[in-house]
Structure formats: structure tokens, C-alpha cells
Nucleic acid binder design. Sequence first.
DNA 1: GTTTTGCCCTGTGCGC
DNA 2: TGCGCACAGGGCAAAA
Length: 264
Amino acid sequence: MPELPEVETIRLQLERALKGRKIQDIKILSVKSFGGDKKKALGIRILGTRRFGKVLVIDLNNGYSLLIHLKLTGQLLVDGEVGLHTRVIIKLDKGRLIFNDLRNFGWIKIAKSEEVAADRLISKLGPEPLKDLTMVKFRDILSKTARPVKIVIMDQEKISGVGNIYANDALWLARVDPRKPARQLDGETVGRLYKAVLTVLKAGLKFGGASDQHYIKPDGTKGEYQDHFLIYGREGKPCTKCGGKIQKFFLGGRGTYFCPNCQK
DNA sequence: GTTTTGCCCTGTGCGC
DNA sequence: TGCGCACAGGGCAAAA
Ligand SMILES: [Zn+2]
């Protein structure tokens, strides 16, 4: 589910709902969904939330933090119902936080707060759009590789937060062929793509994320970006710029949509 | 070193 | 209606 706009939307809701709450108990229904010693969190209050790329962090007031990755089908629900795909239940002094995950790819783990930045995944994350990814850094990153540009902007070690939906939409918006070797983009095109990445992520945030499949917000409502997809999931439909037929193929194992007429 | 492939899981939708 | 296959917001390890 989650790319930067979805995880950030979740974080914003959790920040309000969880701050100051005390964790009373953690019920682990799926062993592989939870790593570390849950006892470190019991009886501890929640200080706040952070986000690193697609990783969500809940800081506790005893020097420990919960790291959460939702992967493709993870959901975090405040006071939600327990269901078939509920993997972890975090009971609070008021209400509870439910972690659902149909495919069981996601995880929650406990780590020392001061070691969060050194986490094996988080420490490798590249600069983040709308935060510390400048145009200069973006141009530098693209210039260093001949890999297809779509692969590069989805590579979390190069740029953090962009996943398959927003990569597809940004490339269409910038009129860039997803297969084009990154270092072959000229300066003007790099600029267009940089702006396009920021534009689609902002749109995702504005609409509260994309509920194309499993994503829902902690309050149980859906995002709306799926109603504003530029090209993602629109195989065979007309391109809204030129009317040409949108094509789909696989790049790096991921569904890739593009308009052969607009994207060069 | 880099880049690709397969895999982790479960469910849904489509073609036959 | 039933069955098998392809595919799904991600990331990792092993292989090439
Ligand atoms: Zn077009």
C-alpha cells in the first residue's frame, strides 16, 4: 500500500490519536509480524511519531521506539475491528491500535530510539522529496547510473519514499520514458522530472493517499488519490494529454504504464 | 562492484 | 461454477 503520501497520511492521524497514550499490552497474533521484546513497550507512554521514507516510527518515553513497515498490504487502524488479517493488537489506556496485513510482508519491531537512524533499512535511505532531495542532488543521482530512470527513482537507497504508483505518474507528467537510462536525461528533462515527482507526491498527500487496493487511513476512511491517477492502472485507456492508448509492460518486475506518444 | 531474479505471503480477478 | 494462472503500494537474499 504505502508510499510516502500514504505513510505520511497515516503518521499524521496517528500523531493525533496516539500521542500521550499508554501502551497496556501487545497481542502478537502472527509471530513474524513483530520483532524484538514487546515487554520494552508495556506500560510506556507514546511521545510522538516520525517517518523515514516509507518507515513509520512511534517513539516511546523510555528510549525505545516501534518501527513499522506496511509493505504492500499493511494497515494501521485506531480502534478498528479485529479481523482475519489482524497480526498485532496494541492495547492502549484508551482504545487500541490494530495492525492488519493480508500478505504478511509488513512488520513492527522495537528498537532503541537513538538507534533508529542507524537501522539497517533507515540508515541506507536516500534523500527524500519534499524534504532534503534538492534538484542538484537529484541530477547528481541520475547522472551516476545507466539503469532505467523508473528503477532509480523507486530505489529507496537513491531516493526515499517513491513507490510504483507515484513513479509511474511522475514519469508520465514529466513526459519521460520509464526505460530511459537515467544518465541520458538532459538537464531540462531532469528538472521536469524533479518537479513532477514533487507534484505527484503533493497530490497524493492532498488526497490522503491512494486506496487502490488495501490502503485505508487509521480512522478507517479511504484516500482519494486513486480517483486522480494520471496513468497508473490505466492500461488500454486513452492518455489524457494526447488521447493515445496507454500501454503496460514490466520493468524491474513492476507494472509500468506509459504513453508511447508522450513519453520519450 | 552492479543489476537481475526469485521469493516472502494471501487474495482477487480473469480466461478457459 | 470451477480451476489455474497472473498480478498486487515493497524489500531482501542469492545469483549472475
Ligand atoms: Zn499521451
